[in-house]
Amino acid sequence: MKLYVFIAVLVAAVVITDCSHTFLGTNVLRQQIFHRNVKYSSYLFQKRVEYLNFTVPNRFGYSSSIQGILAYDKLDSSASANVTAGGLGFNYLSLRMKSERGRGLSYDVYIFA
Rank of each mutant, 00 (worst) to 15 (best):
M1R: 12
L3G: 08
Y4I: 10
V5L: 10
V5S: 12
F6Q: 09
F6Y: 12
I7P: 01
A8R: 08
A8V: 05
V9K: 11
A12L: 09
A12F: 12
A13C: 11
A13H: 13
V14P: 02
V15Q: 13
V15P: 01
I16P: 06
T17E: 13
D18G: 13
C19M: 14
C19N: 13
H21M: 07
H21I: 05
H21S: 11
H21N: 15
F23R: 09
F23C: 11
L24T: 06
G25E: 03
V28C: 00
R30F: 02
R30K: 03
Q31V: 09
I33W: 05
I33V: 12
R36M: 08
R36L: 09
N37Q: 12
V38T: 02
K39D: 05
Y40G: 04
S41D: 06
Y43T: 04
Y43K: 02
Y43W: 15
L44Q: 14
F45I: 04
Q46I: 01
R48Y: 06
R48P: 00
V49G: 04
V49Q: 00
E50K: 00
Y51T: 07
L52R: 07
F54N: 00
V56H: 04
V56A: 02
P57T: 04
P57S: 15
R59F: 13
G61I: 01
Y62L: 09
S63D: 08
S64T: 05
I66S: 06
L70P: 06
A71M: 07
D73E: 05
K74N: 01
L75H: 09
L75M: 13
S77A: 14
S78M: 14
S80W: 04
A81V: 03
N82R: 03
N82H: 14
T84K: 11
A85Q: 15
G89I: 10
G89C: 10
F90G: 08
N91V: 07
Y92L: 05
L93D: 01
S94D: 13
L95M: 08
L95P: 01
R96Q: 14
R96W: 07
M97T: 01
M97F: 06
K98Q: 13
K98P: 05
K98Y: 10
S99L: 04
R101S: 14
R101G: 03
G102I: 01
G102M: 11
G102T: 06
G102W: 07
R103V: 09
L105M: 03
L105T: 02
L105Y: 05
Y107A: 06
D108V: 01
I111V: 06
I111D: 00
F112C: 03
A113D: 04
